[in-house]
Write a protein that binds this DNA or RNA. Structure first.
Lengths: 216, 216
DNA sequence: AGAATCTGACACTGTCCAGTGTCAACAATT
DNA sequence: AATTGTTGACACTGGACAGTGTCAGATTCT
């Protein structure tokens, strides 16, 4: 009855009380966490498989149990970071829309700016060739979030190209500011930074969506 | 009289009519050019010493004649790109100041946007660990250019932190937009893009510096 | 012409590291 | 208690590539 050979990927039995799939999932989670740590500090290029394993307190065997390569782990780490960010930002947009962008940027800040490692992962490291697609996906998510939400707004989208350009501009601005902040090159509190990002957003965004008066 | 040993770095004699230092300089220039080509397309991480040499039509020997490592070549390539950009942008700022930003952005566009490889080199690849300092230097150059020029402007710089944040935001926006454009994700002409960047700049920038009327 | 140097092609060595295999101790199942 | 799956430590192999060395042919100088 097909005894599991040494090499075969069979993990079936409970061990120390925990069922197999849960053990695997836990190990995978630890690796992703370790990846976030290394990628977000020394960067992907300077990270070795053994580094991640040491960080996670596991051995290579379990690395290859869940991932085929470092790039794949990096992808998983980015996916997780994006998912977490979306978890807080999407509801904020749904609830407040873009007429009142401050809560949205507060959500953005709590999800991203709170952890410098995440910032570096999503802004800097996501430029890594194997992750370019995910970076793109993140920006497209921002575009969609902006364009699709709040469809009853009195905005005439001029043309779509312009909207897309503005989304890229805003994403680039927010990313670069966040990065500079994470690297300690901006002497501002988180609150001040949010204020500035909101203001930038309001100013960049096509004018007539906002009554204009309140803006300084 | 100290005959040059095989390994010694002596190059003194003319060859094919060209003096030694000029030959060296030419080879170096070809390597930098080859570096720009590779770094700007496949990226630094995916580039090998032999790749650059093949691209330049030289052999390793001459690579190590001018550079100690790939990172050093990358640094030289970035330096050159920054220098070329500064060559066109700085005079434009000096001549027109920031009250009339369009010529400045046109200069920026002709120096950077004209070549997708340069965009990728300065926006994406400059995130490479060994190049982070130069990337920072580029942004600081933008900050200085903005703050120091046109000192008689009627602007009260609120506080310096804010100015720096805005400079980062503008740099990030311009970089991201340029990158998206270089990768064919923005369906706009160069002119249209310049228009948008100018408008973004004007809107981001503290309000009272611009009379406001002409804007849309 | 003969000596010295420059050039390009390519061989060679050493290092780093991904990916796989081995083994002994341990835990669950029968 | 015996068997089988599980774990961690570590050895092992092979490939890629940086950096250096060798050599033959071409060019310049005396």
């Amino acid at each position: 009855m097909a005894a599991a050979l040494p090499g075969s990927e069979g993990s079936v039995r409970p061990y120390k009380g925990v069922p197999a799939d849960q053990r695997i999932a836990e190990r995978r989670a630890r690796l992703v966490q370790a990846g976030l740590q290394r990628f977000g500090t020394v960067g992907i290029a300077a990270t070795r498989v053994d580094d991640v394993c040491a960080e996670a307190g596991l051995t290579k065997r379990y690395f290859y149990e869940s991932f085929a390569s470092l790039d794949e782990l990096a992808g998983a780490a980015v996916d997780q970071a994006i998912a977490e960010l979306a978890t807080v930002v999407v509801p904020a947009v749904a609830e407040h829309g873009w007429r009142n962008p401050r809560p949205v940027f507060e959500a953005f800040a709590s999800g991203l700016l709170a952890d410098p490692r995440t910032i570096r992962l999503l802004v800097t490291e996501a430029q890594h060739p194997a992750l370019a697609a995910k970076r793109q996906q993140l920006i497209e998510l921002a575009v969609d979030l902006w364009l699709e939400a709040d469809p009853l707004t009195d905005r005439a989208p001029e043309n779509l190209s312009t909207q897309r350009l503005l989304a890229h501009a805003m994403a680039g601005a927010a990313g670069e500011v966040a990065l500079a902040w994470a690297n300690g090159r901006l002497d501002l509190t988180l609150e001040e930074m949010i204020d500035h990002l909101v203001r930038i957003f309001v100013r960049i965004t096509p004018a007539r969506r906002y009554p204009e008066p309140g803006l300084r």
